[in-house]
Design a binder for these strands. Structure first.
Length: 451
RNA sequence: GGCGACGUGGCGGAGUGGCUACGCAGCGGCCUGCAAAGCCGUGUACACCGGUUCGACUCCGGUCGUCGCCUCCA
């Protein structure tokens, strides 16, 4: 296990990753609410935490990544109504889309992907515990968390509870003890076609309590890392933290790891703003390699802009990797390239600095290109595997050039021998039209699939 | 208004109290019949103003600007 440090949103410090037990690391990253197709902003945490898990496993840890799906929620009721579907039907459909869309990223699935609807028992029992401990109260079939009963409330988002906007007109404001109290359980309302029985009557869980319950069921409490988008810090994670700490007397997680937002234009990409690029569209038009390299090209905590230029640039980077992969041979890499590999892992261990790691990868590539042919590729395979980019190593052309193209290549060689450059260049254009780029290397001409 | 973060070369994007990030694009060169690929070289980079320091892009203070959260949000 190499030492890993991660920035913690609660303390604002770089904290060492210290497993509770052996080399086991539990990571809970909040997934989307499934009421529509996900966009590339939603894909960022999926990729960040998915690749982070790969890095940890490659570094001697045994990481368990849990990414939940929220499949009960106001938005789902609204979207289902608009689509003329049952809410569970819509949620199931969109959950299936989510799995397919994220599968296309090719980074593997999380170790667990719990659904809120699959954890009703745990949710209800956690709410009961909170009521019993005096941190929650029932009111007209709803149950609310009593924010004033938990002194630490506000610690994660660094907010002073007394300075927070307590504007009225919020849902349930008449029956809540404090405007900041948030719903753990909501009594079923007209127009909602799903509900669950509880000690407080038929209803459904609030958003925040779902995650507290699912995280605990999968990872216990005081687990290593809780993550998600920075837009979840308040109120979602603040509330999760408060619920679990109030009910269990222990913090929910040791490190809070938040990724920055994807920007589209000058503002955050969000369904509510309407400025979204759907993940499957991005993969369809730019390829999954570009999407992945683009996401890894910025530090996870910083905002990241989404434009066609960025994807084109990412594709150019992918091409450079494929290029070196052509000349690398199986086997151990030379010692001279060792430092790049070392710094690649050091960068990832230092607050998961993927852009710095990529810089080392490209440093390795430059050195390997300088060495020429026959460089052992083990380092490259290792680094690309961590980033889920090992596919760049396999030759794109599964079948190789067809016979006719090879004949053209031979004909071009004859023309070149005869110094008939016009003919040679004409044949080269023909080959390009057939999808092959001619490359005259020292060992004779080679046909490379056109980009 | 409160809280959090950020302003780096043509673009994107790391990082550091004094030493080449890296990628994309440009320019020059090597290689090539010419290209392509690759390699080498190249561009007075660190918002502005003060301060601390032998020395600051890097630390401190202020100014301007941008973004996120404070409501559902990855």
């Amino acid at each position: 296990m190499i030492p890993v440090r991660i920035h913690d949103s609660l303390t604002g410090d770089l904290l060492p990753l210290e497993p509770r037990e052996g080399n086991k690391v539990g990571i809970y990253a909040c997934g989307p609410t499934v009421y529509g197709r996900i966009h590339v902003g939603n894909a960022r945490p999926f990729v960040i935490f998915g690749i982070f898990r790969r890095f940890l496993n490659a570094s001697g840890y045994d990481a368990k990544l849990v990414c939940n799906l929220t499949d009960v929620n106001d938005k789902i009721y609204a979207a289902a109504n608009a689509a003329g579907l049952g809410s569970q039907e819509l949620a199931d459909q969109m959950a299936a889309h989510y799995r397919a869309d994220t599968d296309a990223l090719g980074i593997g699935r999380p170790d667990a992907e719990p659904l809120a609807t699959g954890h009703m028992h745990g949710i209800i029992s956690l709410i009961s515990d909170l009521i019993e401990a005096g941190h929650a109260y029932e009111a007209a079939g709803d149950v609310y968390f009593d924010v004033r009963s938990h002194a630490a409330y506000g610690e994660l988002s660094h907010r002073d509870i007394d300075q927070m906007d307590q504007g009225e007109g919020v849902e349930g404001s008449q029956i809540k003890r404090d405007p900041l109290d948030f719903a753990l359980w909501k009594a079923t309302k007209a127009g909602e076609d799903t509900s669950w029985d509880s000690p407080w009557g038929a209803g459904r869980p609030g958003w925040h309590i779902e995650c507290s319950a699912m995280a605990e069921a999968e990872l216990g409490v005081d687990f290593e890392i809780h993550g998600g988008g920075s837009d979840l810090v308040f109120p979602h994670h603040e509330n999760e933290q408060a619920q679990t700490a109030a009910a269990r007397g222990k913090p929910l997680a040791r490190i809070w790891m938040h990724n920055g937002m994807v920007r589209f234009g000058e503002e955050k990409m969000a369904k509510s703003v309407g400025n979204v690029l759907l993940l499957h569209e991005a993969i369809g038009s730019h390829g999954r390699d570009a999407v992945l390299i683009w996401l890894l090209g910025g530090h996870y905590r910083q905002p990241l802009s989404c434009t066609d230029e960025r994807f084109a640039e990412a594709n150019a980077r992918a091409a450079r990797i494929r290029e070196v992969a052509r000349k690398v041979v199986p086997g151990p890499s030379p010692d001279s390239l060792r430092p790049y590999r070392e710094r690649f892992f050091e960068s990832l261990a230092d607050d998961f600095n993927t852009p710095a790691a990529l810089a080392e990868l490209f440093g390795w590539i430059r050195e390997a290109n300088r060495e020429g042919e026959g460089v052992g590729g083990d380092d490259l395979v290792e680094m690309l595997s961590v980033l889920a980019l090992e596919n760049l190593l396999v030759e794109v052309s599964s079948d190789g050039p067809d016979a006719e193209s090879l004949e053209l290549l031979t004909a071009r060689e004859s023309a070149r021998s005869a110094k008939d450059w016009a003919e040679a260049d004409r044949i080269r254009d023909d080959l390009l039209a057939r999808g092959w780029v001619v490359r005259d290397g020292g060992a004779g001409p080679e046909l490379i699939p056109a980009p």
